[in-house]
Simulated scan of single mutants.
Amino acid sequence: MSIRVGSRDSALALAQTQSIVERLARKAGTSVEIVPVHTESDGLAPELAPLDSTGVFVSALRTALTEGECDVVVHSLSDVPTTERPDLSLAAIVKRGDARDSLCARDGLTLETLDAGARVGVGSPLARAQLRSKRAELEPVDVLGDLDSRLARVENGELDAVIVGAAALTRLGRGDAATESFSLSEWPTKAAQGALALEVRRGDEKLVSALDHRATRLTTTAERAVLERLRDVCAAPLGVTAELDNGLLFVSARAYSSDGSRELTSSHALYPDDSKNPAAELAARIVDELVGAGVAELG
């Protein structure tokens, strides 16, 4: 029996999937093959790609899975909707990579040393708000496209810097492009950033369950719970970080106004064994506190 693993047909996605395939083959003791899943957005020039392209990619992978083209699909968990599908299961969340964002700037510059007016590529409302919060005199520029195309815009002088996920740089062997990586306490990132999830048809969980990493599942589930609960209140850009420290699950969330001029932070912790649903309990505490502080006014 060969396990067919569906992957988006891009350099980063295929690199991520290859690492999963090698581990899955060792654990399952069987052959594993990659099935590239192409969408209409793959191969488009960045300016032609749809703004909601991550949703397009997730949908395409899920269609390939439900139609039997593959047995497993690999997602960047930060792209996956928080609402569960009754016919599908996120059967494994593998050990997380670097959750931080990195700055890739010309001439080895850092966020602090970029000149006023420098053009900095950002790929999300969260990164735009954070950039405005830290350095309001810089010019955020929305960027689309794959990692190499974003870095190329710095190399050719179109941008002075670009902000990208540290894990993506590492997985594509471009870690040397980073001139600075931001502390999660100062620059929290998207829920579940840096984590990969393996999705299967409901009932097929045993295919990949050996790759599930308990600590990563716990922390990313907590982050995604905060995101899901806050989205019922407002659409403010949200950075959220969860970590396990000596058995204590600590979650911190920071919501921003779209222009970065205001921000609200809430942090709570508990021992997972003391709660029936630690992710949901912490999310409720955090969002209730943010609501009481006026988060709905941010966006």
Score class of each variant (00 low, 15 high):
212 D>L: 13
226 V>S: 09
244 L>Y: 12
240 V>G: 05
233 V>T: 05
244 L>A: 13
238 L>Q: 07
221 T>F: 02
216 T>Q: 02
239 G>E: 07
214 R>F: 07
208 V>F: 01
236 A>G: 05
224 R>W: 04
216 T>S: 10
245 D>L: 14
207 L>V: 08
247 G>Q: 07
246 N>Y: 15
235 A>S: 07
212 D>A: 04
235 A>Q: 10
232 D>H: 11
245 D>Q: 13
212 D>S: 06
241 T>N: 11
208 V>M: 10
223 E>M: 08
229 R>F: 03
243 E>A: 12
217 R>Y: 03
216 T>V: 11
220 T>A: 06
241 T>Q: 14
212 D>I: 10
218 L>R: 01
224 R>P: 04
246 N>K: 14
234 C>N: 12
240 V>Q: 11
207 L>C: 05
229 R>N: 10
204 D>A: 11
222 A>V: 08
240 V>L: 01
215 A>Q: 10
222 A>R: 08
213 H>I: 11
232 D>Q: 06
222 A>T: 06
217 R>H: 06
221 T>N: 04
247 G>E: 03
211 L>G: 02
211 L>M: 14
231 R>D: 10
237 P>E: 13
216 T>Y: 02
240 V>H: 01
206 K>V: 09
225 A>I: 02
214 R>A: 13
204 D>I: 00
220 T>P: 02
245 D>M: 11
239 G>F: 09
238 L>S: 04
206 K>W: 14
225 A>G: 04
220 T>G: 03
214 R>G: 08
205 E>P: 06
217 R>D: 03
216 T>M: 13
242 A>V: 09
239 G>H: 02
226 V>L: 05
239 G>A: 09
211 L>W: 03
236 A>Y: 11
218 L>W: 00
234 C>E: 08
217 R>F: 08
216 T>R: 03
216 T>F: 03
240 V>I: 05
244 L>M: 15
227 L>I: 00
205 E>K: 14
237 P>A: 12
220 T>I: 12
240 V>R: 06
207 L>R: 10
241 T>P: 01
204 D>E: 13
215 A>P: 00
214 R>Q: 06
234 C>D: 07
218 L>K: 01
208 V>G: 01
226 V>Y: 00
231 R>F: 13
235 A>D: 11
244 L>T: 01
218 L>F: 02
236 A>C: 03
223 E>P: 00
219 T>G: 06
208 V>I: 10
223 E>G: 04
205 E>G: 09
245 D>C: 14
217 R>L: 11
207 L>N: 07
219 T>M: 02
235 A>F: 01
233 V>F: 08
244 L>G: 12
242 A>Q: 04
226 V>P: 08
